[in-house]
Design a protein around this nucleic acid. Sequence first.
RNA 1: GGGCGGGUGGCAGAGUGGUUGAAUGCACCGGUCUUGAAAACCGGCAUGGGUGCAAGCCCAUCGGGGGUUCGAAUCCCUCCCCGCCCGCCA
Length: 422
Amino acid sequence: MFDIKAIRENPDEFDRLWAKRGLEPQSKKILDQDKLIRKAMQVVQEAEAARNKASKQIGAAMGKGDKEEAERLKTEVAGAKNVIAAMGAQVDSEKAVLNDTLSSLPNVPVHDVPDGESEDDNVELSKWGEPRKFEFEPKDHSDLGEALGMMDFEAAAKMSGSRFVVLRGALSRMDRALAALMLDMQTEEGFEETSPPFLVWPKALYGTSQLPKFAEDLYKAGDDHYLIPTSEVSLTNTVRESILDSDVLPKRMTANTPCFRSEAGSAGRDTTGMIRQHQFNKVELVTICKPEDSEAEHKNMLRCAETVLQKLELPYRVVELCTGDLGFGARKTYDLEVWLPSQDTYREISSISNCGDFQARRMNARYKHAPKDNRFVHTLNGSGLAVGRTLVAVLENYQNADGTITVPKALVPYMGGLEVIS
RNA sequence: GGGCGGGUGGCAGAGUGGUUGAAUGCACCGGUCUUGAAAACCGGCAUGGGUGCAAGCCCAUCGGGGGUUCGAAUCCCUCCCCGCCCGCCA
């Protein structure tokens, strides 16, 4: 959501920034509508003022016992009420139109985000680790998992359809072990471990900007709730509709939760294996902070996510998303991509975004900057990391010629001492 | 799920139809006093919006939405949330 005042003051700047994301100029449409609303509002407010004034006079007249004057004033009020009703309805509907426009527009990128149209224009910032040289043909994680008898897509398909999996034995345990390792590391970094709801109301999803535009990506549960597509939703909304004392900021939270995504629109992409599932676990990082701190917090979150891959000794690279590949609510995003031998490429395993005040405005989340000066917080979110995809990366990078999997050193204690999965 | 009681400013808490946008206390800000601080005293102190160069003026807001009324924090309906009791349940 945007500050309409900022658009009034800088319409060309907004259009320029939206253009970077491939959008037509929007500000003229917005400001015309804004003007229309304000004009109608003035009429309504004048009528309301007349009504209020006359009503007070009625009270006074009744007190004096002047019935005649009271009756005369009542007809005056009735006239004002007609105006209020008619113009008020118009104001409401015009406001709804403007709100629809504004809430479906994406955040604007920070000035230093690289220009570009698609993921092909993303910029590689750094690389860590050397992809391992295999003296045999490395297998795909699903082949490895199925051969071990610990990754069962067929059983999952029978009860739930495609894009689901049943993990068994050591792989099921590894899913838990990875999440535990990540939570331990992130809480060590100062993120508070949190267990939030997995079902949320539409307004929470509106707050983090999955709604209204991306309803088709979500699962609805019952009449009132949606399943969270990421715990970014739950964690960020913990501060909705509140005014935080500035000394509680920055607020850093982490949670391991299942994430539910319908994956509408991704037909044909990653149809096999665990890369793209309807349900997966993810350890999320969310930071709520003052505007002046969000850039540093963003870098901090990137570092915290990287640390997990380093601890697991998985080769990865850091990519900065270009303007055209930025998510809806983000003003700047770093992706972490882990090396997958079977695909001979790096694949996204974490996405870390600074949303600025975009979500805060939608949630009405503020902090006390000074007495009488409440300001919107900045919100940031990132995966630290996607557990399912980390499991994939471990299987593929740590596979042996005989199909067994060496357990990464850091994970052994979390696997009850198990060193090789066979 | 059923019954009852609640939801008021940053917090606590008055207020049941007419200058109540809202008493009072705490917190906070400014001042007096003090070497300094505390205490005491004086003053200020909700949010969003419209309009204006500004001072200001105006509108809305007492959980959300709707209604009754000339006029609603106050009455009615509905939804949400909190508490307690009952039922059900991991």
